[in-house]
Computed example of a mutant assay.
Amino acid sequence: MSAASGIGISKDLSEIFASAVAGSAVRFIKVAIENESLVSRGTTDVEGATLEDDLGKLQTLLEDNEPAYVLARIGSPKAKDVGWIAISYVPDTANVRGKMLYASTRSALTKSLGSAHFSDSLFATSKADITPRAYAAHKARHTAPQPLSAREQEIADVRAAERAAGGTYEGSTARRNHVGQTVGMTWSDEAKKAVKDLGQGSGNELVLLSIDDTETLVLSSASECPVEELSKRIPKSDPSFAFYAWSHDHGSPSGAKRDISTVPLFQKAQVKNRMIYSLQARALHHIAKSHLADMPSVLSERKIETSDPTELNEGFLKSELGLGTSASPPGSGTSTPRPGGQAPGFARPKGPGRKR
Rank of each mutant, 00 (worst) to 15 (best):
G315N: 15
N313K: 10
K303N: 13
G333L: 08
D308K: 14
L321D: 04
R338V: 14
E305D: 12
D294Y: 02
S307E: 15
S297T: 10
E314K: 05
E311L: 13
S332H: 06
S328T: 08
G324V: 02
D294K: 05
S326M: 14
L323A: 04
L279R: 11
V298Q: 15
P330N: 10
G331M: 07
E305N: 10
T306N: 06
S328I: 04
D308C: 09
S307W: 10
I304S: 09
A288Y: 00
L279S: 00
H285R: 09
T310H: 09
G333W: 11
P309E: 12
L284H: 03
T334F: 06
Q280A: 07
S335R: 14
R338P: 09
I304E: 10
G322C: 08
L292I: 03
L323W: 02
F316R: 01
I276K: 04
I287S: 10
L317D: 02
Q280K: 02
E320T: 02
H291L: 14
S335K: 13
P330L: 14
R282E: 01
S297Q: 11
K303R: 15
L279N: 01
L284E: 04
R282K: 14
I287D: 14
A283E: 06
L321K: 06
L279T: 00
E320K: 12
E311R: 13
P337D: 02
V298D: 09
L299Y: 02
I287C: 04
P337C: 08
T334E: 12
A327R: 12
H291K: 04
H285Q: 13
V298E: 11
S278R: 06
A283I: 04
P296I: 05
S290P: 03
S335M: 12
Y277K: 01
I304L: 15
L299V: 06
M295P: 07
S290M: 07
L317F: 15
A281Q: 03
T334C: 08
G322S: 05
G333M: 08
G331R: 00
R338I: 12
L323P: 07
A327L: 14
P337K: 09
H286K: 15
T310V: 12
V298F: 05
T306K: 07
A288N: 03
P330T: 13
S335Q: 12
H286N: 11
P329A: 14
P296R: 07
R282C: 00
H286L: 14
A281D: 01
T334L: 13
A283D: 05
L317Y: 14
T336S: 09
L323V: 04
G331P: 07
T334D: 07
H286T: 11
L279Y: 00
A293Y: 05
G315R: 08
L279V: 00
S328Y: 10
D308L: 10
L284A: 03
P309S: 12
K303L: 11
S290E: 13
A281G: 00
G331E: 11
L317R: 03
E320W: 01
R338F: 10
L284W: 01
P309K: 08
H291M: 12
A288T: 07
Y277T: 03
R282L: 07
